[in-house]
C-alpha cells in the first residue's frame, strides 16, 4: 500500500503526550472500536489556554500518528485557536496521509473539539463559538463526515 510519510512514522514510533490527565477539565472520545478506531483526548485548561493535552488511541498507524500530532498542535493554544485546528491541518502537519486514511482514521481534530465541547459544558457555558463554526462548516471534522 501507499507508504506513510516519514513524519507520520516518526509520530507512530514515538507518540507524544500519551496517557491521561488527573482531574481533566475536558474529555473527548470519538470513533468506535468496531470500526477500528477509537480516540480519547483529555485536556487541562487554565485561563482559556490548553496547558496540557493527552491522548489514548486504539487504531491503525494513522490514527495513532494523528492523535500524537494533535496534542502537539493544541498544547499552549487558546480554546478558540484550538477549535480552528482542522483535520486537514493535522494531515498537513504529518506531511500528508495515505488517501484511504484521510476520512477513516483522521479523527484527532474531532476528538480535540469534543474535549473542548465537554469543557464548555462542564462550565455551563454555551458553545456559541463551537456551534457557530459547526454551522459554517469550519469545523472540518463535522463537515467531512457529511460528505
Amino acid at each position: 500500500m501507499k507508504m506513510y510519510s516519514r513524519k507520520c512514522m516518526e509520530h507512530f514510533r514515538n507518540p507524544r503526550n500519551v496517557g491521561t490527565i488527573e482531574n481533566p477539565d475536558g474529555v473527548g472520545r470519538v470513533g468506535n472500536p468496531v470500526c477500528g478506531d477509537l480516540m480519547e483526548i483529555q485536556i487541562k485548561v487554565e485561563n482559556g489556554i490548553l496547558t496540557d493535552v493527552k491522548f489514548r488511541t486504539f487504531g491503525c498507524g494513522a490514527a495513532i500518528a494523528t492523535s500524537s500530532m494533535i496534542t502537539e498542535l493544541a498544547k499552549g493554544k487558546t480554546l478558540e485557536e484550538a477549535l480552528k485546528i482542522t483535520r486537514g491541518d493535522v494531515a498537513d502537519a504529518l506531511e500528508g496521509l495515505p488517501p484511504i486514511k484521510m476520512h477513516c482514521s483522521n479523527l484527532a481534530a474531532d476528538a480535540l473539539h469534543a474535549a473542548i465541547k465537554d469543557y464548555y459544558e462542564r462550565h455551563g457555558k454555551k458553545l456559541e463559538e463551537y456551534e457557530e463554526r459547526k454551522k459554517e462548516g469550519l469545523i472540518d471534522g463535522e463537515k467531512s463526515t457529511k460528505t
Binding site: C35, G36, G59, C60, G61
Partner: peptide, 27 residues
C-alpha cells in the same frame, strides 16, 4: 488494532499481515 501491530512489527524487521480493516481496500 491489527494494522498498527503490523507496522510496529515491521520496525522490528518482521513482515506480517492482518486480516483486519485497514490494510484491505474495504475498511
Amino acid at each position: 488494532e491489527g494494522e498498527s501491530l503490523v507496522l510496529r512489527l515491521s520496525d522490528f524487521g518482521i513482515a506480517s499481515a492482518t486480516s483486519s480493516a485497514c490494510t484491505s481496500k474495504t475498511l
